[in-house]
Design a protein around this nucleic acid. Structure first.
Length: 206
DNA sequence: GGCCAGGACACCA
DNA sequence: TGGTGTCATGGC
């Protein structure tokens, strides 16, 4: 466990609990995960607010809406044409997953039918980071989310040096207890750290 | 007014 | 597999 837990405690005491993901529902997490791709979270908030005010934060309603209307609502999040298209694809998958979970629960009692990483990755527009964000923050499954901040964090603290997304993910997952709450908070804290570093040292890490 | 943000994908060699 | 172009808004 190369210093991951001590570092976690340092981050927690410096930045405090982040309590991610900021959302009122599971579907809102999914929507946010897609809209935040290469975009400032502030812009995503505007888009989600628009969807809420239009009473459109519902996968069935999204699927029934024409693209131009959807594009107008999510415009602040950028890349709005492709995101509108992909939000529909992801909403269809979301319905498939949640209906399956309900059915499985009814049949067997309890949980089951949760999404797999593969089925999320099969949706056009859902890459590894988005898939893992959904698995972790929307479905409480133990996948550690890797983003640009996480790579910088590893570089900065000389924890690990790799190139592939999954190399980083496996580094964290194999060196931390398999704890969903820990995964959630750790990733959020790394983002808080990354934003803080960006403000204090605008010309890059180190 | 330029740079970048909680990426993903297509296309090319 | 590695590099490059594309998608687009809003804040600083």
């Amino acid at each position: 466990m190369p210093r991951l837990i001590p570092l976690y405690k340092e981050l927690l005491s410096e930045f405090g609990p982040q309590s991610w993901w900021p959302a009122d529902s599971r579907y809102e997490v999914v929507v946010g995960a897609l809209l935040t791709q290469n975009t400032n979270w502030k812009n995503v908030e505007k888009a989600i607010t628009n969807l809420k005010e239009a009473d459109m934060l519902d996968p069935r309603k999204i699927l029934k809406t024409r693209n131009p209307e959807l594009e107008t609502l999510i415009r602040p999040s950028g890349f709005y044409r492709q995101k509108a298209e992909r939000l529909k694809l992801l909403s269809a998958k979301y319905l498939e997953i949640t209906e399956r979970m309900v059915e499985r629960g009814r049949r067997q009692g309890g949980s089951g039918g949760v999404p797999t990483r593969e089925e999320l990755l099969s949706v056009k527009g859902v890459g590894k980071e988005t898939a893992d964000s959904i698995l972790l923050y929307a479905f409480d499954l133990p996948y550690f989310v890797i983003d640009a901040y996480t790579r910088r964090f590893c570089e900065h603290h000389k924890l690990f040096r790799g190139k592939e997304y999954d190399e980083y993910r496996e580094f964290f997952e194999s060196n931390l207890p398999r704890d969903v709450a820990l995964y959630k908070e750790y990733h959020a804290l790394i983002v808080a750290w990354g934003k803080d570093v960006a403000v204090r040292r605008p010309f890059g890490p180190s």
